[in-house]
Amino acid sequence: MEVRTIKVFTTVDNINLHTQVVDMSMTYGQQFGPTYLDGADVTKIKPHNSHEGKTFYVLPNDDTLRVEAFEYYHTTDPSFLGRYMSALNHTKKWKYPQVNGLTSIKWADNNCYLATALLTLQQIELKFNPPALQDAYYRARAGEAANFCALILAYCNKTVGELGDVRETMSYLFQHANLDSCKRVLNVVCKTCGQQQTTLKGVEAVMYMGTLSYEQFKKGVQIPCTCGKQATKYLVQQESPFVMMSAPPAQYELKHGTFTCASEYTGNYQCGHYKHITSKETLYCIDGALLTKSSEYKGPITDVFYKENSYTTTIK
């Protein structure tokens, strides 16, 4: 009895394709271990004539594949690729409408935090270190965002349907971005203890939790000093293409032309909904596939993004 075979390709990165001759009487799992086709788990399936010449994702289970996976995804987590594939199996079914010149995501599976993050990423200057993220990001900007969303979920250790947080998501993504040249110098002034300067680099240099107003941050924000008295913390120097200011959701007025974009969060910790506000020729609110415009805006804002380049204080 002759062994019926077909020729397929296996890959971990969709760049390096490895030619395989597979036995049609055995499952993919018996031949390769966990195997995925377009995100779908085909591990328990036997090869079919229609699979001839198709590319299958496999887990990096030998040295060659491990090197290829690390170079593309910059992670050695053995569960990463499987999590990416199972997320992709959902995100490829989502709709990605162009809204006001940006790629958004039609609401499904509690994905409003991903839509808000995706919209924000198209408006701030950011370059990702893992080629996987950078490639998928370019495709997302062009309207094909399924891979990018699935990668975000995998890097953030999230599953489809789980509630997510924009600030946490951005923080994970910033860790995989090139923020080497970003720098922030802060000064804390206390009447009792004097003053202390701190220099922050990388992710810490672009994120701040405690106030939404970048102007206020430049002037000074009140913080408790270690001595128990009130101290003032203010920005001395900022070198970065953008800054992200966050605070627990509270009524906040966004003035046209003073910011790049913002995240609105309605609801409580267990259950809520994100919308995205962007400042173009007027203010726009993007909620999944829905767009509304207004000249002014007041609502429960939790993150505001500002364009920056270089700032030095005039406070002496």
Rank of each mutant, 00 (worst) to 15 (best):
T5C: 14
T5W: 12
T5L: 12
I6V: 15
F9C: 10
T10R: 12
T11F: 07
T11A: 05
V12K: 11
V12I: 10
D13I: 00
D13V: 01
N14C: 10
N16L: 12
L17F: 12
L17H: 14
H18N: 08
T19Y: 10
V22D: 01
D23V: 12
M24L: 13
M24N: 15
M24I: 13
S25H: 12
S25G: 14
M26T: 15
Y28N: 01
G29R: 04
Q30A: 15
F32T: 14
T35W: 00
Y36P: 00
G39E: 11
A40P: 06
D41N: 13
T43F: 08
T43C: 07
T43D: 09
T43P: 05
I45K: 08
I45F: 14
P47C: 07
P47N: 02
H48R: 12
H48Q: 09
S50I: 14
E52W: 10
G53A: 13
F56L: 12
F56R: 02
Y57L: 10
V58Q: 13
L59I: 13
N61V: 10
N61H: 11
D63K: 08
T64D: 12
V67F: 14
V67L: 14
F70M: 14
F70T: 14
E71I: 11
E71K: 12
Y73I: 09
H74D: 06
T75W: 01
T75E: 06
D77C: 09
P78Y: 10
P78E: 12
F80P: 05
R83W: 06
R83S: 07
R83F: 05
Y84C: 04
Y84G: 06
Y84Q: 02
M85W: 10
S86F: 10
A87V: 02
L88A: 00
L88K: 05
T91D: 02
Y96W: 04
Y96R: 06
P97V: 12
P97E: 10
P97H: 06
Q98V: 11
V99D: 00
N100K: 14
N100Q: 15
N100G: 15
L102E: 05
L102S: 08
T103N: 00
I105T: 07
K106Q: 15
W107L: 04
W107I: 06
A108S: 14
A108V: 09
D109E: 12
N110Q: 03
N110K: 04
N110W: 08
C112H: 08
L114W: 02
L114Q: 09
L114I: 14
L114K: 02
T116I: 05
T116H: 02
L118A: 07
L119Y: 02
L119D: 02
T120G: 05
Q122N: 04
Q122K: 05
Q122M: 04
Q122F: 02
Q123A: 07
I124Q: 05
I124L: 15
E125C: 05
F128W: 14
N129F: 02
N129S: 08
P130F: 04
P130Y: 06
P131N: 07
A132E: 07
L133F: 06
L133T: 05
Q134N: 12
D135P: 07
Y138K: 15
Y138E: 15
R139W: 05
R141F: 09
R141I: 14
R141Q: 14
G143C: 04
N147F: 06
N147C: 11
F148M: 13
F148A: 07
A150H: 07
A150M: 07
L151K: 06
Y155V: 02
Y155W: 05
Y155S: 03
C156R: 03
C156E: 00
N157T: 03
T159V: 13
V160C: 09
E162H: 01
G164C: 00
R167V: 07
E168F: 07
E168P: 01
F174E: 00
Q175F: 02
Q175C: 07
H176P: 03
N178S: 12
K183E: 05
K183A: 05
K183S: 06
V185D: 05
L186K: 07
N187W: 04
N187H: 07
T192R: 13
C193L: 02
G194F: 04
G194E: 06
G194R: 05
Q197C: 03
T199E: 15
T199H: 11
L200W: 01
L200A: 08
K201W: 14
K201H: 15
V203G: 06
V203S: 10
E204R: 11
V206E: 04
M209V: 13
G210T: 01
G210E: 01
T211E: 15
Y214V: 05
E215H: 03
E215L: 05
Q216V: 04
K219L: 11
G220W: 02
V221N: 02
Q222V: 12
I223W: 15
I223D: 07
P224H: 12
P224Y: 10
C225F: 04
C227T: 05
C227P: 01
G228W: 03
Q230K: 11
A231H: 01
K233T: 11
L235Y: 03
V236C: 07
Q237A: 13
Q238D: 01
Q238F: 02
Q238R: 02
E239Y: 07
F242Y: 02
F242I: 00
M244F: 02
M245I: 01
S246V: 06
S246F: 00
P248G: 01
P248T: 06
A250C: 14
A250M: 15
Q251M: 15
Q251E: 15
Q251K: 07
Y252C: 05
E253V: 12
K255T: 09
H256C: 13
H256A: 10
G257S: 05
T258E: 14
T258V: 05
T260E: 08
T260I: 15
C261K: 03
A262N: 00
S263E: 01
Y265M: 04
T266S: 10
T266Y: 08
G267A: 00
N268Q: 06
N268H: 07
Y269N: 10
Q270K: 11
C271L: 13
H273P: 01
H276D: 02
I277D: 00
T278G: 01
T278W: 05
T282P: 01
T282Y: 09
T282I: 07
T282G: 14
L283E: 00
L283D: 04
Y284I: 09
C285E: 08
I286Q: 09
G288R: 01
L291R: 01
T292P: 00
T292H: 11
S294E: 13
S294D: 00
E296P: 09
Y297R: 02
K298L: 10
G299M: 04
G299K: 03
I301V: 06
I301P: 00
T302P: 03
T302Q: 02
T302V: 07
Y306Q: 11
Y306L: 02
N309G: 10
Y311F: 15
Y311I: 09
T313C: 15
T314H: 15
I315C: 13
I315Q: 15
K316M: 15
